[in-house]
Amino acid sequence: MSGEAARISAHLTRRARWGAGEIAFWIGLVALIFVAPSRALLINEILIAGLFALSLDLILGYAGIISLGHAAFFGVGAYGAAILASHGINDPIVGLVIASLIAGLVGLASAPLVLRGSDLTRLMVTLGICLMLGELANKNSWATGGADGLSLELTPIFHLFPIGFTGQRNAALYSLAVLFLLFALARRIVQSPFGLSLRGLRENRLRAGALGISAPRRLIAIYALAAVYAGAAGALVAQTTQIVSLDVFDFHRSADALLMLIIGGTGFLYGGIIGAALFIAIKDGLSTATPEYWEFWIGLLLVALVLAGRERIGARIAGLLPRRARGSAA
């Protein structure tokens, strides 16, 4: 092994270790669910939104693929879980896995379309695919319930822990477990040579190509993986709220995930989760205080955050980092 390869390998191994802060972060999340059981549903929503934002970060932050239609996979996962449940597959975990894989397949199928062309075409193509899937769900009401939505009934997790109205804390813990497992996997992937090569592609596709890194396959792989993640988030929403309606394909879902990433930071796995927590908690606080005009305040907050705060927060986080561990994030 040459010196350079050894250095990179050592660097990757070092970064793969879980730090004390990270462990505290996850323990804190578990504790939060037990400390504030009355807010378990809101925490659940945050965890799911965090997973969805994480999924978007995989393609946007790590591979530089811009998407305005990421809700497409979220919706496929949600409807997948709901349709499975309405056809007798009532085990949440089985439903979650199958629904996520279906979303992944849709991602795999649509990836070649998305990866063609420039950023602007990508925006259009992702948006278009999401609209098409939304309309398909609307039209095929024999399977999806159309505009009336689809309710689902599930057996308790491991036949022990119900996740409905009586199991709100279980629902949040279930979402947290799924988020943690997928997070750990994503963490492993972005630190692998594959993850590094994606960053290379994001930074300079031509140069990466010259180094012998083939772009299309890697981008398709990460795009499909992100679709699996988004599908899992959608399936979690369907399972923990036990209803799916056409709004899972709404544009605002994709846009909100983007906002969360902007708040929390892209190219940084915790960014999506932190962004989701801040976005949803602020939104909930504001919309309780002023149900009619909260959008104004959140708009103002976002402008302020992006113009004034974001840079400083980013700099502070970067200052705490050991050297350049965060790469070109934020």
Binding site: E22, G28, L29, L32, V35, I46, G264, L278, L320
Partner: peptide
């Protein structure tokens, strides 16, 4: 980063 993560988490909590 870790302290920042914790702080953000606590604030949200």
């Amino acid at each position: 980063m870790l302290r920042a993560i914790l702080r953000a988490g606590l604030a949200a909590g």
